[in-house]
């Protein structure tokens, strides 16, 4: 049987989902969830497992990544639990433990390298020119010093280490 971690819910509360313990398992969150309509993802179950302290099970589940962050559950929760925030908090913990999905790791690598999670490519350079726009947008794409600053920020917050650690472990 899986180890129960009673501190798990405390960590979630501390990170900002302060009303999570007031959950009455009414299921409103699951019933309004657009991902839950078509997958086995059940928000209510996720919250219940978190409250039970089933940390490993929650953090290792691919279902944790099916939330589209539409915030409908958060709006409708009769106990005003910040459900979406709770999911994001648990995702942060999952990433820390190395449970990031490969596609998310790749998008993060792009951000680390270019400052854009979706960087410019040849086809869109051409499209921009044909529209009379600058070939490269006036973002970090056009300013190396700005990109350097951004890279420093991502090193300082630990993002570079986090993503490179996942790269190494894959």
């Amino acid at each position: 049987m899986e180890k129960v971690d009673h501190a798990f819910v405390d960590e979630i509360v501390k990170a900002g989902a302060d009303r999570i313990r007031t959950c009455i398992q009414c299921g409103t969150c699951s019933s309004v969830c657009p991902s839950g309509r078509r997958t086995a993802f059940r928000t209510r179950e996720l919250i219940r497992k978190a409250l039970l302290g089933l940390k490993e099970e929650v953090l290792s589940s691919p279902n944790l990544w099916l939330c589209a962050t539409c915030h409908t559950c958060l709006e409708r929760c009769p106990r005003q639990i910040k459900v979406t925030d709770a999911i994001i908090i648990m995702r942060n913990m999952a990433a820390e433990k190395g449970f990031m999905l490969p596609e998310h790791r790749r998008a993060s690598m792009k951000l680390l390298e270019t400052g854009h999670a979706v960087p410019i490519n040849t086809a869109n350079r051409e499209k921009r020119v044909s529209l009379g726009l600058d070939e490269v947008p006036p973002t970090v794409h056009s300013h190396k010093d700005a990109l350097d600053d951004l890279k420093t920020i991502m090193e300082r917050t630990g993002f570079k280490d986090l993503i490179e650690k996942q790269e190494a472990e894959k």
Partner: peptide, 13 residues
């Protein structure tokens, strides 16, 4: 730069 994405990058760090 990237904003960064509220449900993506915010979910990682």
């Amino acid at each position: 730069s990237c904003c960064p994405a509220p449900g993506v990058i915010r979910s990682f760090s």
